[in-house]
Amino acid sequence: MTGLRYVYAVCRPFGAPLQAQLTGVAGAPPRQLVHHGLVAVFSEVPASDFAEEPLRAHLEDLDWLTATARAHQGVIDALTVVTTPLPLRLGTVFHDDSGVRTMIEARERVFRRTLERLEGRVEWGVKVYAEVSPEQAQSGTPSAPAVSGQPVSGRDYLRRRSTQARAHENMWQQAEEFAGRLHATLCAHAEDSRLHNPQNATLSGAAGRNVLNAAYLVPRSRSEEFVELVDRTKDESKGGTPGMRVELTGPWAAYSFVEEEQT
């Protein structure tokens, strides 16, 4: 091999084959390097794109970054089907096999401890959005229709605004309470959880205000039960707490539960 080594993840040896025709970053197939009983899954990539200088430049190119992230995630998803991978950061590149082996040796203890803890487990993501109308988003409740030709006193105006502000505050309080109850319920059915910062609606493009953005570590054997629990919550929210939208994603490799141990 003459290219650089782009490493996706570290895992234990696994016997099941990856899906046929799987390609990763730069269109290269993933390969395995076994060292000290651990497996680094990598692709050979050209130095012209992945050496330090060109890689830094590419990371400023949104189209290139999106395509690379999609290819990276595709390999992680394929690994998650057959084993428990510890995903490495996007753009983890080494000059040669020796560099990969050195990385494994330097972090071997952490890798083994984390793999032991996460073996047979996957991550599920749950987001809750409070969906409101444009009028509610602006003032908390639809404005009362104006009466044609009837002036509104300053006192009436202030009273109306005060009422709207209280309604607005109550609406978000109900949303936060719903999200808190859901998180507590899901935590009771998961082995671990992480609360992430709410998503910015402008960046995510998702409708509504994100009031819960959480990840849950769940054994594969209990994943069906966990999904059914979230589905029941979706149905209950329609009747008990209108305006709530619950989104479930996964199963994923346990990204949220390896970061702290790998730093």
Results as ranks from 00 to 15, higher is better:
Ala78Gln: 11
Glu53Pro: 00
Phe50Asp: 11
Leu88Trp: 15
Leu59Tyr: 09
Pro87Gln: 03
Ala106Tyr: 06
Gly91Phe: 15
Phe42Tyr: 15
Arg107Asn: 15
Asp61Trp: 10
Ala40Tyr: 10
His35Glu: 14
Arg117Leu: 03
Leu55Ala: 12
Glu116Pro: 02
Leu55Tyr: 14
Val39Gln: 10
Asp61Val: 04
Val82Ile: 09
Ala51Tyr: 05
Glu52Val: 15
Leu86Cys: 01
Thr80Gly: 12
Leu88Asn: 09
His36Cys: 11
Val75Gly: 08
Glu53Ile: 05
Ala71Arg: 12
Phe94Val: 00
Arg109Val: 09
Thr92Gln: 04
Leu86Glu: 05
Gly74Arg: 11
Glu105Leu: 07
Phe111Met: 08
Arg101Asp: 03
His72Met: 10
Arg109Cys: 06
Glu52Ala: 15
His58Phe: 14
Ala71Phe: 13
His72Lys: 10
Ala69Pro: 05
Thr84Ala: 03
Val41Asn: 10
Phe50Ile: 06
Thr84Gln: 04
Leu90Asp: 02
Asp49Thr: 13
Leu88Pro: 07
Ser48Thr: 14
Val82Gln: 04
Val45Gln: 06
Thr68Met: 08
Asp63Pro: 00
Trp64Asn: 02
Ile104Pro: 09
Val82Asn: 06
Val100Trp: 12
Val100Met: 11
Val45Tyr: 05
Val100Ser: 03
Asp96Glu: 03
Ile76Asn: 13
Leu55Val: 10
Thr114Met: 07
Thr84Phe: 02
Val100Thr: 03
Gly37Phe: 10
Val93Asn: 02
Leu88Lys: 10
Gly37Ile: 02
Arg112Asp: 07
Glu53Val: 14
Ala106Asn: 08
Val34Lys: 00
Arg56Met: 06
Arg56Phe: 12
Val34Thr: 11
Val81Leu: 09
Asp63Thr: 02
Gly37Lys: 07
Arg56Cys: 10
Ala78Trp: 11
Thr68His: 00
Asp97Val: 09
Arg101Ala: 11
Arg89Ile: 00
Leu65Asp: 04
Arg56Leu: 08
Glu116Asn: 12
Ala51Glu: 12
Leu79Asp: 07
Asp77Gly: 01
Trp64Asp: 01
Phe50Pro: 01
His95Asp: 15
Leu62Asp: 01
Arg113Asn: 11
Glu108Phe: 03
Phe50Ser: 07
Val34Arg: 05
Pro54Leu: 06
Arg70Pro: 02
Leu38Val: 05
